[in-house]
């Protein structure tokens, strides 16, 4: 076991957050988040004014999305230690569900890149692509739900209790449930449960990045105290 490789992988959480934060939110000027109540003409004008910034930001988003695989693989190795035995199914579930997260973030970037690609694209088409991107990226709940549920169960029922603290298991199950609010985005063009609302965006984004920081911190600790016989 090369401890350094594991540490590099888990630290990929940092560039992931920076690339996603800058690429999808700050560089295109989408922070605070754009309103789902915007008309097609307003959306088209937004692309007109920020075309290059959107293209650059989305390129960073697409680039950053792959780092989620690396980060998740490092967590999966710790889950493998916890689960033990020959059939670590929860580890497999967490690792495969991480693919879902990568795909939604990556595709969200590509959809916005497409929307920004041709200046003569009709505004309603630009709006559709932007809608898909935001519904996908902010509402990426299925893979998050399954992945964090598997991780939580793994910590609570695994063979080893010294890798992650037990409360982190409960916290993961809690976050799994919270992430389900992403399923409500598609019903609203405004208000608390839409993609720029108090619950739909602010609660979910805080929980998502808070979860990354916690998992990063405790995984680094678990890797550093890893004793291989």
């Amino acid at each position: 076991m090369n401890r350094l490789n594991h540490l590099i992988c888990i630290h990929s959480a940092i560039p992931f957050c920076i690339l996603l934060g800058l690429g999808f939110f700050f560089i295109p000027g989408w922070f605070p988040p754009i309103s789902p109540g915007m008309s097609a003409a307003e959306t088209g004008a937004m692309y007109e004014a920020n075309r290059l910034a959107i293209q650059f930001g989305m390129t960073l988003t697409v680039l950053g999305s792959g780092l989620w695989w690396v980060f998740s693989a490092a967590i999966a190795m710790q889950m493998r230690r916890i689960e033990g035995g020959d059939f670590p199914i929860l580890t497999c579930i967490q690792l495969t569900s991480s693919v879902g997260n990568v795909i939604v973030i990556m595709l969200a970037g590509y959809f916005c890149l497409t929307a920004a690609y041709r200046p003569d694209m009709p505004a309603s088409t630009v709006q559709s692509f932007t809608d898909i991107a935001w519904l996908m990226n902010i509402g990426a709940y299925p893979s998050t739900f399954i992945g964090t549920l598997a991780l939580g169960l793994c910590i609570l029922t695994g063979e080893r209790g010294d890798v992650y603290p037990r409360w982190l298991g409960y916290l993961n199950i809690w976050y799994a449930v919270v992430s389900l609010a992403g399923g409500l985005l598609a019903f609203y063009h405004g208000g608390p449960f839409s993609w720029n609302g108090e619950i739909g965006f602010w609660l979910e984004a805080n929980c998502f990045f808070g979860w990354i920081i916690l998992m990063w911190w405790f995984s680094v600790r678990a890797i550093k105290t890893w004793e291989v016989a």
Binding site: L156, W167, I173, W174, V178, L203
Partner: peptide, 14 residues
Amino acid sequence: EGGIWLFIAGDLSI
């Protein structure tokens, strides 16, 4: 155990 109280506190805060 301690963890379930964290879960409950989290749930109530949501």
